[in-house]
Amino acid sequence: MQHTRTQDTLVGLFIASGIVGLFFLAMQVSNLGSFTEHDGYTITARFENSGGLKVKSPVSSAGVKIGRVSAISFDTTTYQSVVQMNIDAQYNTLPEDTTASVFTAGLLGEQYVNLEAGGSDELLKDGGNIEITQSAIILEKAIGQFLFKSASEKK
Rank of each mutant, 00 (worst) to 15 (best):
A45F: 09
A45Q: 00
A45K: 05
A45M: 05
R46N: 12
F47G: 00
F47Y: 07
N49C: 13
S50E: 01
G51A: 02
G52N: 13
G52T: 09
L53P: 03
K54R: 13
K54Q: 13
V55N: 09
V55E: 11
V55S: 05
K56D: 09
K56Y: 15
S57I: 05
P58F: 11
P58Q: 09
V59S: 07
S60F: 05
S60R: 05
S60M: 03
S61C: 10
S61M: 00
A62F: 00
A62T: 02
A62C: 10
A62S: 15
G63H: 01
G63C: 06
V64I: 06
V64L: 07
V64D: 13
V64C: 08
I66K: 03
I66D: 06
G67H: 03
G67F: 07
R68S: 14
R68G: 11
V69C: 03
S70P: 04
S70V: 03
S70C: 05
A71W: 10
A71K: 15
I72D: 02
S73A: 09
S73M: 08
F74G: 00
F74Y: 15
D75R: 13
T76G: 13
T76M: 12
T76L: 12
T76D: 11
T76H: 12
T77W: 08
T77C: 07
T77F: 13
T78P: 05
Q80K: 12
V82W: 00
V82S: 04
V82A: 06
M85P: 07
M85D: 07
N86G: 15
N86L: 13
I87E: 01
A89R: 15
N92D: 12
N92R: 05
N92P: 06
T93F: 04
P95H: 08
P95L: 01
E96R: 15
E96W: 02
D97F: 02
T98V: 08
T99F: 04
T99G: 06
T99W: 01
A100G: 15
A100D: 00
A100P: 09
S101A: 14
S101R: 12
V102R: 11
F103W: 12
A105C: 02
A105P: 04
G106W: 02
G106Y: 00
L107A: 12
L107C: 10
L107H: 12
L107W: 06
L107Y: 02
L108E: 15
L108N: 15
E110D: 14
E110C: 00
Q111V: 04
Q111R: 10
Q111F: 01
Q111D: 14
Y112M: 07
V113N: 07
N114Y: 08
N114C: 10
N114I: 07
